[in-house]
Design a binder for these strands. Structure first.
Lengths: 334, 334
DNA sequence: GCCCGTTATCGAAGCGCTTCGATATGTCAC
DNA sequence: GTGACATATCGAAGCGCTTCGATAACGGGC
């Protein structure tokens, strides 16, 4: 294994000079830098990560803790993970993967052993047991999601409240007066994950603001439950012309249940969904939808972390504005 | 930050004794060990990962490179990742996440900088560009998937050939004589990823062995393509009573297309799928299926890697036998 | 009662890098 | 020409741990 002293000897400089060339922390003449870089390349030198971490107390590794509870949309988690890794690499960092299962001990372990410089935690609950730990840690962290008490923490997420509202406004703008939210399973609201409730709140507020008629219906994530709910809605609310679905697994079943009931989408009923774009595009018909901008959330989370690592001040809360992509499933009421 | 010398002082021993207590590499009297462990606990000591890696040339971190190409089933990838992390933790290792995008350079980077001790590579292609690198690296690796030339490499995967055959045997056992394989998109076969072709081969061989009538139909992963293919199959092969679907996104569409054509499942046509259990369970009707045992593959991959790290010899190829779970979608031919 | 082999512990070297003075050289104002 | 000040480079210390002898204490065999 080639080390810094080998490079130094090869380039005819001292090891510290090689180090400064690599870190840029002191000015090095163009000529020397060139010679050193050439030696590095020629010898195929790679600094030893452990040695570097020891000497500089920076590992250049971030921890990412991902959820694995059922009910969490797996593709979205994956998208987050990939975007975090990609963004981290842009900042010359790597990503250590932790599962929720490891819990607080896992976070403490990687932080206290200096394995990682900073942490990103996904799927934050309203009263998340990891919060006290994250507050006490001497390493910066960013939460994806908003707990009930976010004091001293840095959080980022899609603005779910606005997302709920934006869907209502879209339907209202198309002339719909009677709408409904087909929501997440009851336990998701009960669990206080926050985002489901925020969508419902945003929905309700916008409904009120626009003087619409609209209500919220939690729904189990099964095709049967979806069919049942759709049947009930159509029976109880004959004037219903707009539906917002916030429950990924049953997006397809809801559409089929509407069709089965003889309602055409969008001619009879307009449908808007909160789901990944890919799912919306492949639905029949393609769905007007609001997606979680996982790439942006992940990227921004890393940016925030880097800013904190550099000692910068960062906003405590970052709410990303929702974007509704209009597709075939929503149309003006006739 | 508390370090080993603090623990040593607190316990009234030398730092090396603390180290030996932790590593177990030399015998320590029960009394001393107890005292040291108590001090460790009391002071909340965590060895510095970088220092440890530097001194022992072992980082206790594995690299996992995940695919992000479209067409790769995201939930399965996630399941792999989680099982690898979980298994790694059992061996006191952590997992560094790399994306396919980083390619060979990424692997080289983490290996040469001693950031990781060993590597796991997913989604191996028949002629994977990473193979020469993995062969030349001085760190052990395990591939999930089988390339065309696996010399000097350690590979593990589901036995896709047997999986294709097992589905045929299941249908044959139920008395079906005319069957078809609704396969992956043409580009997946073209890409030489291997597993799609292996399923098709296993299917074809078993069809021949049982004297059945059966053929292979690649299919794009869209609902339209699925409908079209099903219509064509039913038109061209009136005696068709069994279908194997190896194309996750269109499992639902195929079922619905059959139903739309007036064929009941399983009364008129039996369907078997290769897909995750969760998908099979939620289909209507629940599908007899063969799943990729991602948990086992991930766990075994880590075990193999650990054995290699310990200098042990491991089998070059590990093929996990497929398991067909019988559900409602397949029945004896009438 | 002496030698030998264990068992338990210590001390010191060293892993490969960063970083902090210190030094040497050059530049410029006056 | 001289002091003041950048600029470029070096040398050495030290990051926290592991590991390799070395040493001390202790039994046991004869």
């Amino acid at each position: 294994m080639v080390k810094i002293t080998d490079v130094a000897r090869h380039a005819g400089v001292s090891p510290s000079t090689v180090s400064y060339v690599l870190s840029g922390k002191r000015s090095i003449s163009a000529e020397t830098r060139g010679r050193v870089l050439e030696s590095i390349h020629e010898l195929g030198y790679r600094p030893h990560a452990g040695a570097r971490a020891l000497a500089s107390s920076r590992s250049n590794v971030l921890a990412l803790m991902i959820p694995l509870r059922s009910g969490i949309a797996v593709p979205v988690v994956m998208q987050f993970a990939v975007s975090v890794v990609t963004a981290a690499r842009r900042h010359d960092h790597d990503v250590l993967l932790l599962t929720q299962e490891e819990g607080e001990d896992g976070l403490r372990r990687v932080a206290d052993s200096a394995l990682v410089d900073a942490l990103i935690v996904m799927d934050v609950q309203m009263k998340d047991p990891r919060l006290p730990l994250l507050r006490s840690l001497d390493r910066p962290s960013v939460l994806i999601g908003f707990p009930a008490d976010a004091d001293d923490l840095t959080c980022i997420d899609l603005d779910f409240h606005a997302a709920g509202a934006v869907c209502v406004e879209h339907l209202a703008g198309l002339g719909h007066r009677e709408i409904a939210l087909v929501g997440s399973p009851p336990e998701v609201y009960a669990r206080q994950t926050g985002y489901a409730q925020r969508v419902a709140d945003g929905f309700a507020e916008a409904v009120a603001a626009h003087g619409l008629d609209g209500d919220v219906h939690p729904c189990e994530a099964t095709a049967d439950a979806a069919r049942e709910l759709v049947a009930r809605l159509l029976a109880e609310r004959p004037g219903l012309t707009g539906v917002l679905v916030h429950n990924e697994p049953i997006v397809g079943p809801v559409l089929r249940a509407l069709r089965a009931a003889g309602r055409r989408v969008p001619q009879d009923v307009s449908v808007v969904a909160m789901c990944p774009d890919e799912m919306a595009e492949h639905a029949e018909p393609p769905l007007s939808s609001v997606a979680i901008p996982a790439d942006e959330v992940g990227g921004r989370a890393v940016d925030l972390l880097m800013a904190k690592l550099d000692g910068g001040a960062v906003p405590a809360a970052t709410l990303l504005p929702p974007t509704l992509t209009r597709r075939a499933s929503s149309a003006a009421v006739r």
